[in-house]
Design a protein around this nucleic acid. Structure first.
Lengths: 119, 119
DNA sequence: ATCTCACCTGGAGCCGACTCCAGGTCAAGC
DNA sequence: GCTTGACCTGGAGTCGGCTCCAGGTGAGAT
């Protein structure tokens, strides 16, 4: 049952402490355990959930949708089919993002080639 | 020398009219020609530059950097080597974005598989 | 002629996602 | 025992990028 101080959680997750507090405040993170002095002590579970958050965030999922996903997770096992649906849908968007970036990248490369040709 | 009405420019570029006006206001777009009544008439050149803008925007380049690129373009032919540098640098970031998305997508897919396994 | 509709302007407002601040509390090293 | 520094809170502020609004103009369709 390892616990992590705020500084360690920052280190592990790559989020700032302010961001972690913000996520807790808006309910993206369930209320984090506290020590006697009221300081946060993050659990392994918190960190693993934050790993999911990072993944969703970095693939462009808006906070509002992450909140909905968080509620599914909290609601228990019977929402697993729903969670799969959310993730599959998101996966498709990520796929589309990648395709779009690759397409735009081709344009950029054409432009670079053109510039090279007129140098 | 085809010209485009605002509505046509919207149609062609996929930007809203407000966004086009905003881009002109901040100097991302050079002052657009006007007809006698003061209404904008976009040139082919404007549209092609907007195509570039769309590409850079959709690949995540911040407006501040697009502005710098716009200045290079305005400054004339002698900035072509600099423009190549900007685009190459950006291309690398796009590449990194794609790699990152693909990586995150793997995580999402693992999660989906896991959820399927516990259904 | 009149109406409608696409425009125009300057400036305010909005939204998402943080980020910062003031003022306070504890714990641990010297 | 004191200082330093990591942490706490609620709430305000910031930032990027639009988006909307009020009030007005001019041109073409009925």
């Amino acid at each position: 049952m390892t616990v992590y101080t705020p500084a360690e959680a920052v280190e592990e997750t790559g989020f700032t402490l302010d961001t972690l507090r913000y996520y807790e405040k808006i309910g993206l993170l369930e209320p984090v355990e506290r020590n006697a002095a009221g300081q946060r002590r993050f659990s392994e579970e918190d960190l693993s959930w934050l790993g999911m958050i990072r993944c969703l965030r970095d693939t462009g999922m808006p906070i509002a949708e992450m909140l909905r996903f968080a509620e599914l997770v909290r609601a228990g096992e019977h929402t697993i089919a729903d969670r799969i649906r959310v993730l599959e849908e998101h996966d498709r968007r990520v796929q589309a993002q990648i395709a779009n970036l690759a397409e735009r990248q081709r344009y950029i490369n054409h432009k670079i080639s053109y510039y090279r040709s007129v140098l």
